[in-house]
């Protein structure tokens, strides 16, 4: 059933942020809200009416919808173990990266459209960081494609399970990189702090200052979806092939919960970087994925 993973990701997205927040509160010694509290907040926002500034144009109105839609389309590409996603074709990970980029582009020009100088600043930072994180994702997917010999998500994750320790080792390294990419793409801790209250230090939050009501709800839920999406990619690296759904689904959910706990832990123990330290941190991820690429080349014995 191709739609299974789509439904699973949607379900995961409902409690993902809740687990992150719960982990953080436990580490800081508080009881914390229930794990569905973020979802309840979003539901409350979705029922509200939008308020638009008079200076903003139609771009500002359509940007959140396109952003949300792009994330949904990207999710449709994610496979589930041996099952392919709703769409699957050769080179679909390129499409995946660029459909997300389209969403990001719209959220950036939506932010610029408000004419608010803070939002412009946030937009430029967001653009810079995505720009730096993009090579990391491509090199990582490239090494996986090289390892398996296929170029679509479904085939790559199909082929990666040849059982030797190398695939799991590469999988561990790849999930390390993917976690970091997910943290950057979702504007989480070492790079950005969603809890910050000073506009000058914000990145993503400052971009959505003018959004309200339904639009804000969409944007917030898109973040949850993206987290669940990256979690699904990581889970795919560890799904055992040839097993029935009653094995795969618990593994999937387990990996997602683990991912959320890891994110929460990281956020509890890592201090936020100075703004000037962010580019080198993000570039480090590219370097690491480049290393993985070389390692795959050397292990396979494919030289130029």
């Amino acid at each position: 059933m191709p739609g299974l993973v789509f439904i699973l990701i949607i379900i995961t997205s409902f409690f993902f942020t809740g687990i992150v927040i719960r982990t953080k509160s436990i580490f800081s010694g508080r009881k914390g809200p229930g794990i569905f509290q973020p979802m309840k907040d979003i539901w409350r926002l979705l029922q509200k009416e939008n308020v638009y500034s008079q200076t903003s144009s139609f771009i500002f109105k359509i940007a959140p919808d396109i952003y949300f839609a792009s994330v949904l389309i990207a999710i449709m590409l994610i496979p589930f173990g041996t099952q392919k996603g709703i769409f699957s074709f050769d080179g679909d990970f390129v499409f995946f990266a660029y459909i997300l980029a389209v969403g990001k582009f719209f959220s950036i020009i939506g932010a610029l459209d408000t004419g608010n100088s803070f939002e412009g600043m946030g937009a430029s930072r967001e653009a810079l960081y995505s720009f730096l994180a993009e090579p990391a994702f491509f090199i990582l997917m490239g090494s996986l494609a090289l390892l398996t010999g296929y170029t679509s998500f479904g085939d790559i994750f199909n082929g990666i399970h040849f059982g030797s320790y190398i695939s799991y080792a590469i999988g561990t390294l790849a999930s390390f990189v993917l976690i970091l990419i997910a943290m950057i793409e979702n504007s989480r801790m070492p790079v950005d702090d969603p809890k910050t209250h000073l506009e000058l230090t914000m990145i993503h939050e400052v971009m959505v200052l003018d959004n309200s009501g339904f639009d804000l709800g969409l944007i917030l839920h898109a973040t949850n979806l993206k987290f669940a999406m990256y979690g699904a990619i990581i889970a795919n690296l560890f799904l055992t092939p040839g097993r029935e759904w009653y094995f795969s689904i618990p593994i999937f959910i387990g990996v997602q919960i683990l991912f959320a706990v890891v994110v929460g832990t990281l956020e509890s123990f890592i201090a936020r970087f100075r703004m000037s330290h962010n580019p080198q941190f993000i570039f480090t991820i590219t370097s690491i994925s480049l290393l993985i690429f070389f390692a795959v080349l050397l292990i396979l014995g494919k030289y130029f």
Partner: peptide
Amino acid sequence: LPDFLSVVIITCIIL
């Protein structure tokens, strides 16, 4: 040197 350049150069060294 700025740290960013350091990372770039070490990456180039590995390359």
